[in-house]
Amino acid sequence: MKNSLFMRLMRNPSGAFGTILIMVYLMAAITGSFSCCPYPPDEQHVQDMLQPPSKHYIMGTDEFGRDVFSRILRGATNSLKVGISAVVLASLVGITIGTLAAYIGGNFDNIVMRVMDIFFAFPAILLALAIVAALGPGMRNTILAIAIVYTPIFARVARGPTLSVKSTEFVTAARSIGSRPIYILRKHILPNITAPLIVQISLALSWAILTEAGLSYLGLGAQPPEPSWGSMLSDSRMMLELAPWLAIFPGLAIMLAVLGFNLFGDGLRDVFDPRLRH
C-alpha cells in the first residue's frame, strides 16, 4: 500500500517534482543538523566579511564572515523544525475541532467555534508576542505561537466542507442505516474534505516558514547565532543594496521549499482522491 501510494505519487508530475524538492530540502536539513559542511554555520571569518559568492564561499559571506551556504543548510534544519512541528500541531488540533464541531452541530458547534473565533479574531502578532514574552524566546515557543495562530484557521477550513458533505446523500444514507458516527467521520467525511485540507496544509507549511520570518523580524524565533531562513531574509533587508547575495539565497531557498510543499500537496491530492482510487 505504502509502496503503491509512493509509486502513484511519482507518476504524478507535480508529485514527483515536489517530492524531489522536498528530498533536497530534507537532505539540506539533515546535513545542516550535523554542521559539517563546509564550515560550522556560526564560525566567523572576520577577514572575509561580506564576500560575494566565490570558490571558497559559494554563496558568499555575511558581515561576520560567516559562510552563507553553511547557514542556509543549518537554516533548513531550523525552518523545517519550526514549520513542520507548528503545522502538524495546528492541523491535528484544528481539523479535529472543526470536523467535530460541524458534524455534531448545534450548541457544541456554536460554543467551540466561538472560542475559536476569540483566538482567530485575535491579531496574530499580539498573540505571538504574548506567548513568547510569557514563556521566553526560543524555537519551542515560536512553534507554539505559530501553531496557536493557525489552529482556528484549520478548524474553519475543516468545518466548511464538512457542513457541505454532511448533508449529501451518502452521509444521510450511512446515518439512516445506523453507522456509528466515528465510522461515518472516517469513512465518508474525512476522505471528502481531504482535498481542501491538503491544499491548506501545503499552504500552511509555507505560511509557517514566512511567519517565522515575520517573528524573526520582531526578534523572536530562532535565537542568534542559530540561523533560520526567515531570520536570514529579514536581517538582509537593510543590506539589499550592499550585499544582495545575503538576500537572494535565503529568498531562493524559501521559494523552492514552498514550491516543493505546494507541488507535493497537489500531487498528494490527486493520489488521495477517492474517486480516482476506485
Binding site: 556560526d42 564560525e43 566567523q44 561576520f64 508576542l129 514574552a133 521566553g136 524566546p137 520582531l218 526578534g219 523572536l220 535565537q223 542568534p224 547565532p225
Partner: peptide, 20 residues
C-alpha cells in the same frame, strides 16, 4: 554575536537573549 564569537576563544560560552 560578535562578542559571543570572540568570547568563545577564551572558553567562555554565551547565549543571546533577544527581547522586545
Amino acid at each position: 554575536q560578535s562578542i559571543q564569537a570572540q568570547l568563545k576563544e577564551i572558553g567562555v560560552n554565551t547565549e543571546i537573549e533577544t527581547l522586545e
